[in-house]
Structure formats: C-alpha cells, structure tokens
Design a protein around this nucleic acid. Sequence first.
RNA 1: GCGGCGGUGGCGGAACUGGUAUACGCGAUGGAUUCAAAAUCCAUUGCUCGCAAGGGCAUGUGGGUUCGAUUCCCACCCGCCGCACCA
Length: 777
Amino acid sequence: MSRYEPREIEERWQRVWADEKTWQVANPGQEGFDDSKPKSYVVVMLPYPSGEPHVGHLKVYSVGDAIAHFRRRNGFEVIQPMGYDSFGLPAENNAINTGVPPKAATEKSIDSFRNQFTEWGISVDWSREIATHTPEYYRWTQWIFLQLFEKGLAYRTQAPVQWCPKDATVLANEQVVDGRCERCGTEVETRNLRQWFFKTTAYAQQLLDDFELLETWPDHVITMQKNWIGRSEGAEVTFRCESADIDFPVFTTRPDTLFGATFFVIAPEHPQLDQLIGGTDAEEPVREYVNSVARESLQERGDEGRPKTGVPLGRTVTNPVNGEEIPMFVADYVLMDYGTGAVMAVPGHDERDFAFAQKFDLPVRRVIEPGNESGDDAEEAGELPYTGDGPMVDSGSFDGIHNREAYDQIVAWLAEEGRGELSVNFRLRDWLVSRQRYWGAPIPIIHCDDCGLVPVPDDQLPVVLPEIEDYAPKGKSPLAAADDWVNVPCPKCGAEAKRETDTMDTFVDSSWYFLRYLDSQNSEAAFSREAADHWMAVDQYIGGVEHAILHLLYARFFAKALKDMGHLGVAEPFANLFTQGMITRDGAKMSKSKGNTVNPAEYVSRHGADAARTYVCFMGPPERGGDWTDEGVEGVHRFLSRLWRVTEEIVAAGVPTEKPSAGIEGDGRTLLAKAHWAIDKATRDFSRGFQFNTVIAAVMELVNEIYRVKDDLIGDPDGRAALAFSTATAASLIQPFAPHLGAEVYEQMTGDRVWEQEWPEADPAMLKSDIVTIVVR
RNA sequence: GCGGCGGUGGCGGAACUGGUAUACGCGAUGGAUUCAAAAUCCAUUGCUCGCAAGGGCAUGUGGGUUCGAUUCCCACCCGCCGCACCA
C-alpha cells in the first residue's frame, strides 16, 4: 500500500483543472454561457501583493473556495475571480530603501501570489485576473474619476487636512486613527492644502438607508459603519451677533434646551473669527490662543477628559427664543468640521458646556426638571447638568410642557420666525483621495491658467504613470519632477498647461475591482452593463473585519454613484458579507519582529495544501480567530491520511460496482446510517453561517466509523459496497476543503469527478434512529 | 463613558427550538506492532471521594423562571473589538 503523498495527488489534479480550464465561466453573450443555472458571484477581498502570501491569505481563500465549491455543487454557476491591489505605499517605500522600482517588485510578488494560490488549488477563473497597477486597469479608474468629476462628485478644494510627515502625504479621515497615521503610526499634522475629494457626504443618508438591502452583513460591521456615518437629528438655529452684523447658525440636537443657553462658543478655526476680534481688545489673547491650539496635535485636542480652555471674545449674540444677550467665546472643544463650527452652550443640560461654565464661572440655568417617570436615583437626577427628560421650566410659554413635546413646538416656532429649522447632521466627511506619492493612478486632470481644471479627454486615457528615477517624497508628488510628463498643452485651448501630479488613494482602485472582474478584457469600457446586470451584486463577499469601515464604505459609495450615473443596476455591491477572524500564534498577532510568523508554503510542502486548508477551516468558527499550532495541522493531515489509506485498502480488495443493498443489516447498516447522518449534518452546518469546523468534524466521525467496521465488512461484497459508498461520501463532503484528495478518493471509489457531482442528499429513511428516545417527565 | 462580541476539560472548540454537557481535534497515559524507532492501530482521559459497586461537584459569579437551564430572565465580574469633547 502506498503512502499518502499529498503533493503528488495535488499536482495531478491541479494540472487537470488548469488544462481543462475547469473554473472558467463565460459571460452572457459569450460562447459556453450557461443561463440554465442561477448565478453566484463569490469574491474574496483581493490581496495587496507584497512578498509572499501569509496564513491570513491561506485562511480567507480557503474559506472563500469552500463556499465557491459548495455553491457549484448546489447547482449554481459560480464565478470566483482573483486580482491584486497592486498600487500602494509599501512598494514605493521599498523602492526608496532598496532602489528596486515599485513595478518590478510588485510584479514579482504577484507571480509569487499567483503561484501559491495555484498550489493551494483555489478554484479561480484566471481568465478574469486583474492587477490595479496596470494601465489596462487604471485607465478605467481614471475614467470613473472623470465621471465623478463631471457629476460634481469629485472636486478640488483647500481645506485643513491630515498630513503624515513620515509618508509625506495627506490622508483620508478614515486613515487617521487616534491622531496617528493608520499605516505607519506617525502622529499626523494638520495642513491647509488644496486637495481632491469625493463627495461621499452626498450619499450619507443612502448609505444608511441601504443597510436594508443587505442580507447577512455581520451586525458589528453595520454598527461600525453607522457610527462612522454618525447621523444625528436636531435643528439649525441662528444666533445673531448684532455688534458685528453676523448671523451664526448652530446645529443642536437639543432645541428644547434653547432657553438654557447662557453662552456661545465658536471653533478656533471659525472663518468669521477675524471679523469678530479685528481691532478689539480681544484680538491679542484670541490670536495667542488660536496659535496654541494649532500647535497641539489632534490627539491631544481630542482627549475627552482634558480641562476646558477658551478665551472670551468680548462680544455677545442674541438668543432667538428670549432675546437674551449671551457672551461669545472661542474654545477648542468646538470642532470646525462638525456642524457649523459654533455651538450654543447649555451648561445646565450638557456635560461639556457645564465643565466650561464651571471653569469660566458662567451661569448655569435649569430649564428641564428631572421627570418623575424614571423613579431611579432622585438625588442624582436633581443635579446639574441633567441630560434626561422632564417638564420644562424657566422657558417662557413652554413651561410645564414635557421637553420632548417642547422640542417640536420650539422648532416649529423658530421656523415660523425664520430663525431655525429641523436639520440632520452627519459625522461622515468627504473622502480625501489625492496623495502626494508616486505609486498610484495619476489623477487625470490638467491645470490650465485660462481654463482651470480640465479633464483629460477620454481618448487620451490612460494617463500613464511615467517611469522616474527618484521616488523620495518631497512634500509634493515625485511626479512633479517629471517635466516631460507634467508639461502638456491644455486639451481645451492648447495653451501650455500642467498635469495634476497627485495620484489617487489606493482605496479608489479597490472600490470597483469586483466590477472589472466581470469584464476584465474589455478595452472599450470599464465593464459592460450586460455583464454587470447578470453577475451583480456579489452574492458572497469574504474578507477581514479590518476593512469594516474603509474599503466597504468606499465600495458602497462607488456602487451608488455608478448606479446614479447609469452604469450599474444595483446600489449595494455586496449582498452578503462574511468576515473571517485573525489567526494568531502563541496567542499573539503574527509579526516578523516577534518572529512568530507562519509561512503557509512550508506547511503546504510538508503536509499538503489540503491539510493546510482544511486545518484553517477546522480551527474554530471561521468568523472567529484561532491560534495556529503545528500539532493541529498534523492532526488534520493524519485524518486525511486515514481517508487515503482506507481508500487504498478498498481498492486492493476490489471496488464493488454494485450499490450497497437496501436490506443490509448490522455494521453495514450502521455505517450507511452514519454516512447519511454526516451528509445531513455537513449540509446543515454549511448553510448555517459556514460552520466549517463542525462540517469537518462530522466527516472525521464518518471516517472513524469506517475504521471501526472496515475489518468486518471488507471481506464481503455487500459490506465492501457499504464501505465504498461511505468512503466516497466522506470524499464528497470534504471536497470543498480538500479538493485534491476529495477528487482522488472519489474517483477511485466511483470513477467520477467529484466537483461535477451534485452535493449529496441524505436519505431520510437512513436518518431514523432504531432507538427512539422517549422523554419521560 | 457609549456600542458590539465573548467567558464550557490541560488546550482549540461542540451542544440545532430549554431535554444524555464536554462531539471532533490536540495533548497526556497505558497497550499492540517493531531488534529498535518513526509511522500505524486499540484503550483510557472533566474534577473529586471510594478497593469496589457507587456517590458528590462541574458551562465566569450570585439570584430567578422551569419537571428540567451552557441555552430564557435579573444583577454583577472579567476579556476582546469598535467609537469617543460630534453640540
């Protein structure tokens, strides 16, 4: 009997799949297109190709492939493409350090990724492969940019932006975490720069509403996105500064507390600050304060518990509800980029305003009595600031009314007076997409002194990224030094003009790649509407939670914008989302510095791709993380070897051509019952949130049962038929995880190709237990 | 502080709708095979008292509902993740 040599088996089947283009699927209108089957579009988030794939990749592609196989065998026409998110800073930083051009290094990594994915036996339709750094791809990234530009959804403006001094580029808000660059951890600075933005805020409401359309997105991802979009309802109320002749609108979620406003605060960056203090006694101290705030990092400023600071402006505004004059302050706890950059301060009913009032000895006024409805801690409820509900006091004609009712009445009254209206505010800001770096898609815009911002005409796309010598960032894009490339005639008037030298954030590239997969060879369009209408939306999207906000929000925005521009039929790109957990080692996140990394290639060569793949699916529920152990992989390898050995044994004894007889009794009957039990269990757990660990456990139980009875059954033709059926069943059920061994064993037992077989169905008659358990009360 | 997820043997984890807690795997112990080892196979393995038959205790803690609770309810403790001066 020969040993289980996984690499031999795996290479053999990989050759078959490659030669026969088994996983290649035609589009509508193409030869071989099959519309008799329902479609299923399975996408695993595309990798950033750097070095070699790590275990995270092994896990996510194993999970995705299991789903793809299961869908195929349940009668779906499945496409599972692959691509590379191949623009990005790491390749460029590497180029600065080593001199290896980003393109060369990236393409080497892509080859390595493709080779390993092939060795793992992932069932990819390679005819659809894309890489975002190729002109064939980014030509269409640029085209989409221009589409957004035409619709006013891409615009250029000067704004205070987050600048990472280490990476020497601006960052999107989403890419700044705790005041630090999400990539490199460097503290970011605020700079006032002209930058390109996508108008994500135009879709803020729709991004919230369309969560309705999503079928199985994990709650925590939706929650995170909702928090990020940060919708709050309230009112916009205008306070007037008579002495300076300026109206100050403020956003408040508590218009019911308007009568309690005792002062007024504006942000240090407020554009009208100069007008308010110019030539007054307050000018000196205010300027000093504003400068000191500017010197502070965002992180320091954002600290919730820090003592309140601020400076009086020596002016007042009029409270529109009672005509009262209240003093104005500038303070850094008011942020310019939320609401209107000014707030009415109600220290009696807001904790931050209260803290400020205490510090500056300002009056605190109660306008809501603690309600008696809650009945809990009366003492605490009586203290100020009080943020709960209750009847209004000291609020003119609204006294005695419950604050929730007063809310509506006050807003109605303000609207009548023309001093306010209902309003909704979002925390979400527009997406800053320009980067002062080299290795990205050039922004296809030409700056002309006379014509302004001129889009590069369609027939001149792509704007090819030129090859340069010096990648080092100098505060502006390295592209600025490429004179031949920068200087071009204006497409409109022909005068001398200059190209935009910024490149796009790589998240732009990855916001639409799942559309390019559908029509990757199309040189006339980004993708055909017909192909998109057939395949979209993605039926199952799979990836890490770390993209819960960034990538998933951007891709959702893209789909909505493309839909509104008539290029796409769906508003949500990913109908179902599955997020897989991270694999650790020795309980810690893997990192080169800790020396606890796992190189999948090593395990694939030692135990086979099937064992490595099955192990990552067996570690625990795939949405959770797990700790990698060598013993664990060995255990799975042992299980696969057992399946292999029993196959050899049955082959040696002679594989029966007959099916097991229906009347079989004893061990044969028990074994068949176990096989049907395993089919039933595996099918249910597969469908129930991809519980792969228990699917695999069920197959292990079946194999254990085969071993328990095989010596008794192998001598008898009928018993051998039962063994062959059960072994083929085990192969069939393990195939989504171990496609090579699944194919091998299945072929030996039946002569057929397992991936062409329908997923097995359990015979209900075989599921009935002989022993009926009666529950006695 | 707010929101979400979780806590079960020595370890990773099972347990569907409230019905045999600990499936499956790892590890450990004993045995078979072998000149020996590897590999393989078989058996045992929650803790505890007992020579044994058998008993007691166990799903983070404390209560509750129920004939019956890992599962449902209330209160609390711990861990992980996200957000956090957003008016």
